[in-house]
Amino acid sequence: MTARLILSGLADLFRRPSTSLSVILGVFATVFLCGLLALAQVGLDGALAKGQGVLRFQVYWKPGADAALTARQMDWMRALPGVIEAKAFTPEAAMAVMRGSLGGAAEPLLPGAVNPLPYTLLLGFAPPEHDDKFAKETLERLTAVDGVAEVRYNPAAIDAARSLGLLGAQAVLPLGAILALLVGLVVGNTVRLTLLRRREEFEIMRLVGAAESVIALPLVAGAAAMGFVGAGLAATALAFLWSAVAGQLAAAPLWLSLAAPPGWLWISLIAAPTAVSALAGLAAAMESRP
C-alpha cells in the first residue's frame, strides 16, 4: 500500500507536467544561486586559509653544525604536532639558490672554500584554536634544540590565522543560515502553494473515504521528488561550473588552486531542499484539511 501511494505521488507529477516543471525550475534556481554563494564562500575561505592561515617558523642552525645530527633534529621537528609543511635547506642548497639569484655578482661575496650559510628549516604549523600559548611554546621548544642559533617567526601570522577562524564563525555560519532560510522559504512555499491548488481534489478524496495518510503520503513523495530533481540538477550544474572555474583559476596568470568543495556541501545542497520539499508536501496535506 505504501509503495503504491508513493508511486501514485510520482505519477501525479506527470499528470500535471507544466506545474511539476515550474516547481522543479523554482527549486533549481534557488538551490543554484544559494549553492553558488556557498561554493564561493568555501573557495574563498579555503584560499585564504591556504595562504594566510599557517604559522611559519624559520629555524637557523649555528654555522658548522654537524650534518648528521642536524638531519635527525630536522626529522624530529617535522614530526612535531601541527606541522603541515616543512622545507629544509642545507648550506650547499642555500648557496646554490643564492648563486642562482645573484649570478656572477655574488662571486666576490661568496667565497668558494668556506660556506658561511647555516642549515635552515622552514616549518609551517596549523595553529590550534583557543591556544594563545602555542606560538610562544613552539618558539621555546625550537630554540631549545641543541645547535639551533636562532628561530624567527612573524607574531602577526597567528593573529591572521585567528582572524580567519573568526571569519568562519562570523561570516560563514550566518551566511549558511541565511542560505538555508532562503532555500526553506522559497522551495517550501513554492511546493506548498503549488500543492494547495489541489485542495479540491483532496477534499473529494476525503469524501470517498481516503484516510489522511492516503492523501499525505503521495504528496510528500511527489514533493520530495520535485525537490530532489531540482536540487540534483542544480548541484550537477554547480559541479560543472566549479570544475570550469577551478580550471581557469589554476592557469596563468592567477595560478590559484582551489580545494574541492567538501562532500557534505554537495550532500546538503541536495538533501536539504529534498527534505524541505517533503515537509512542504506534508504541510500542504495538513493545511488542506477541512
Partner: peptide, 20 residues
C-alpha cells in the same frame, strides 16, 4: 481520524457531483 472509515461504508452522491 475515523471519518474515512464511516465514508467507506457510507457513500454519497452530491448535488454538484464532486468529480475530478
Amino acid at each position: 481520524s475515523k471519518l474515512h472509515q464511516l465514508r467507506r461504508d457510507v457513500a454519497m452522491v452530491f448535488q454538484d457531483f464532486k468529480i475530478l
